[in-house]
């Protein structure tokens, strides 16, 4: 077969030439129109928890990373990532992370089925928001956890499940992003320091009979805890007791005197470093 090699050479030359010209144009364009990206943004983005949960207050992890590098957001702003992420971001940014004590979301209600009395049987749309608007909610206590799982739906870390009519938190999975706290129509969830083990788990503002009738574990504002506390850490206001975690020594004396069992000690006494 007679192959005319010259045709192959033409093709190679033509395509090679085109390639070289395009390459040159692209190279010039790359130099001329280069967008300067601070490489720290990419690294901060990689260090974030990456759930796009929005707990930092910025539109997703990308928004947060850009804000950190710009200096708008604190380096420990990624609550979902916790201390490790804060340290990693601080290293990238060349600053100290500061201390961010581990925090965790806890339910300030013990109104499970059988403890909080039922007002009516709710079989409507499965949403706490909806049920809370219906005649004071399905439970007698108008301050209780409704237990239809609005918090469970927004939790990106699978840390919440509904058991026996109330939300149960898995503290190993919880990153304290606070989405559940924002979502709960009853404001029954609080993000607290992880070592705040002594908690008043009731927010019933009613005093006396209405509170007693609503739930066997309702705070009746009797102030026994307030009288018992030697550290001025627990106070009754607005009809229920609440603890100032900075003053509380986690001694648990208040839990012992509470006649309604609404103060709980989680995991016994902890060592405060």
């Amino acid at each position: 077969m007679n192959i005319q090699w010259i045709h192959v050479v033409y093709a190679l030359l033509a395509l090679g030439g085109l390639g070289a010209v395009f390459g040159l144009v692209l190279d010039i364009a790359d130099k001329k129109f280069a967008v300067e990206v601070d490489e720290r943004v990419t690294r901060v983005r990689a260090a974030c928890a990456g759930a796009n949960c929005g707990a930092c207050g910025y539109p997703g992890c990308d928004g947060f990373a850009a804000a950190v590098v710009k200096g708008d957001a604190p380096v420990n702003g990624c609550t979902a990532g916790g201390a490790k992420t804060a340290a990693a971001i601080a290293e990238i940014m060349g600053v100290s992370a500061g201390s961010s004590e581990p925090r965790v979301a806890r339910l300030l209600c013990q109104g499970a089925v059988g403890i909080a009395k039922e007002r009516y049987h709710y079989d409507g749309y499965k949403s706490c928001q909806m049920a809370s608007q219906m005649v004071g909610g399905p439970k007698m206590c108008p301050y209780s956890c409704i237990g239809l799982g609005d918090c469970m739906d927004v939790c990106k870390f699978d840390a919440i499940r509904i058991e026996n009519g109330i939300a149960v938190f898995d503290e190993n999975k919880c990153v304290a992003c606070g989405m559940c706290e924002k979502t709960c129509p009853r404001h029954a969830i609080a993000v607290v320091p992880k070592d705040a083990t002594v908690l008043v788990r009731c927010q019933n503002s009613d005093i006396g009979r209405p509170a007693v009738e609503a739930c066997t574990h309702a705070c009746i504002a009797c102030k026994r805890c307030e009288k018992t506390c030697q550290y001025d850490a627990i106070h009754v206001s607005n009809g229920f007791a609440s603890i100032d975690t900075s003053k509380c020594t986690r001694c648990g004396e208040c839990a012992k005197v509470c006649p309604r069992g609404c103060i709980t000690v989680i995991g016994g006494q902890v060592e405060v470093a």
Binding site: R119, S132, Q133, M134, V135, G136, G137, P142
Partner: peptide, 8 residues
């Protein structure tokens, strides 16, 4: 008194 609203 509890009527049809969210609160009494």
């Amino acid at each position: 008194v509890q009527q049809l609203g969210a609160r009494t």
